[in-house]
């Protein structure tokens, strides 16, 4: 479904700020895989996601989606196949537009946008049904501007919008990190539900080790631009946080220093 081959990326090459963001990344996702990604800040997780979404282009390497080489495809073309939820709850929706207009934007993702009405009667029914499944009472606020929603509500809507057209690949970039624990738990369970419903191929970055273990069938750990550990579906079933910490120490010969990683244990 998704294949990254020999991906390299260097920022500010030839300057004192030179940083190897990705160093020889190889990763293959089969249809229906749900991979969680952990790693400290600066490990290259977000850079890798930006490569997949098309916001960045790799210096070396190829990216294939469904057997099609998309390495140089611009972001707006690639996003036909890719759904994305950002960390910032403000990032995934248009604040001055209404809930139903936002859903209409999401609905048109894999269609060409023409002069048909964005919110038709038939579509309204689809939007209503989708919103009801969130259980947030948003179905009664179709005409409310999204900027008036709370962070949790907006993130739930972002998630619904990202998965609305059943994209080939779903990218979740720490999408629960900016929420309070109870909202984060809600979004986590919603993520699980939506991904399982359409068995979406998913990549999720998280700093919450327990979440990384609980969700998905595979797990990868990144450090300094490399994938240093891949946990297969069989191994992942019995994985604990302690195992992950020990693995990191064994591979890198140093203790994992991430306050957020420690705090979340």
């Amino acid at each position: 479904m998704l294949k990254l081959q020999h991906i390299h990326k260097i920022f500010n090459e030839g300057t004192p700020d030179e940083k190897v963001a990705l160093n020889h990344i190889n990763l293959t996702l089969e249809a229906g895989d749900f991979v969680t990604i952990i790693g400290s800040n600066g490990a290259g997780k977000s850079t890798m996601m930006n490569m997949i979404s098309g916001a960045l282009t790799p210096d070396v390497g190829t990216i294939t989606i469904n057997g099609k080489d998309v390495t140089n495809l611009p972001e707006y073309k690639r996003s036909k196949y890719i759904g994305r939820v950002f960390q910032d709850p403000m990032a995934g929706t248009a604040p001055t537009m209404t809930i139903q207009e936002n859903l209409a934007l999401a609905y048109s993702r894999n269609k060409s946008r023409g002069l048909r009405s964005g919110v038709s009667k038939a579509r309204k029914e689809i939007f209503l049904a989708a919103l009801e499944s969130l259980n947030l009472n948003l179905e009664n606020r179709l005409n409310a501007k999204v900027g008036l929603l709370s962070g949790g509500e907006r993130q739930a809507l972002s998630l619904l919008m990202a998965t609305f057209t059943k994209p080939d690949i779903l990218l979740l970039d720490e999408h629960t990190a900016a929420l309070d624990p109870s909202r984060a738990a809600l979004i986590t369970s919603l993520t699980k539900e939506l991904v399982e419903k359409d068995s979406l191929t998913t990549l999720m970055i998280t700093h919450d080790m327990q979440q990384a273990i609980d969700l998905g069938n595979r797990l990868i750990m990144m450090d300094k631009g490399q994938i240093i550990l891949e946990v297969s579906p069989e191994e992942k079933k019995n994985l604990t946080i302690e195992d992950l910490m020990n693995e990191f120490q064994r591979i890198r010969g140093e203790k994992m220093v991430s306050d957020r990683a420690l705090l979340s244990t």
């Binding site: 707006y76 990032a91 934007l105 269609k111 023409g114 048909r116």
Partner: peptide, 28 residues
């Protein structure tokens, strides 16, 4: 009328949150 069509909605979203609408496959 135009600003309520699919293209019009994409136009409004481009003015509102360009990063978001690009992730929904609009050629901004």
């Amino acid at each position: 009328w135009f600003l309520k069509t699919e293209y019009g909605l994409a136009l409004r979203a481009t003015g509102d949150n360009v990063k978001m609408i690009r992730s929904f496959s609009a050629n901004t």
